[in-house]
């Protein structure tokens, strides 16, 4: 019984420690890779760090307001363990406004918002090879605005 209790405590500590270090790594990745791709000489990061650990076949929606007359750059980066990371920007009617798979987008989108709108950045990790274990990795959505 004593051994069982010890075992539970050990599992709890190991799992918590792994989870914290994995989140920390993900956040660091988001800052380093995300900022580099954002090009902070042109765009000021908006101050939010949207990062999450995803597996192949997973997806995430990031809801975000965009304001009329402002120039934005949306960047999505994924860790190397994830072979492919796609993203679409859709409105609240789920109509696609931008698709990273169309054209040579380099997983970023620069645009000027013509109106005030809440948009959804939909990030999708395509499924991996059948039968294999799904790969897991950190994904970050970084948004910057151009100074007037």
């Amino acid at each position: 019984m004593k051994l069982f209790t010890k075992s539970i405590i050990l599992i709890a500590f190991l799992t918590l420690g792994y989870s914290l270090s994995s989140t920390a790594q993900c956040l660091e990745f988001a800052k380093v890779k995300g900022f580099a791709k954002l090009d902070t000489s042109k765009y000021i990061p908006d101050g939010r760090l949207n990062s999450i650990t995803l597996s192949e076949g997973d997806n995430v929606d990031v809801y975000k307001p965009f304001f009329r007359g402002r120039k934005y750059k949306v960047v999505v980066v994924g860790q190397e363990s994830l072979k492919k990371v796609d993203f679409q920007v859709v409105n609240f009617q789920r109509q696609v406004i931008f698709d990273s798979k169309k054209g040579n987008t380099n997983n970023s989108w620069e645009f000027e918002s013509e109106k005030n709108q809440n948009l959804i950045i939909h990030v999708d990790i395509p499924k991996g090879a059948e039968g294999g274990n799904p790969k897991t990795g950190c994904v970050a959505v970084v948004v910057g605005f151009a100074q007037k």
Binding site: R48, D58, V60, D61, Y63, K64, H122, V123, V141, V143
Partner: peptide, 8 residues
């Protein structure tokens, strides 16, 4: 819609 939602 995605399985996970983040409100930024």
């Amino acid at each position: 819609k995605a399985k996970t939602i983040l409100h930024s």
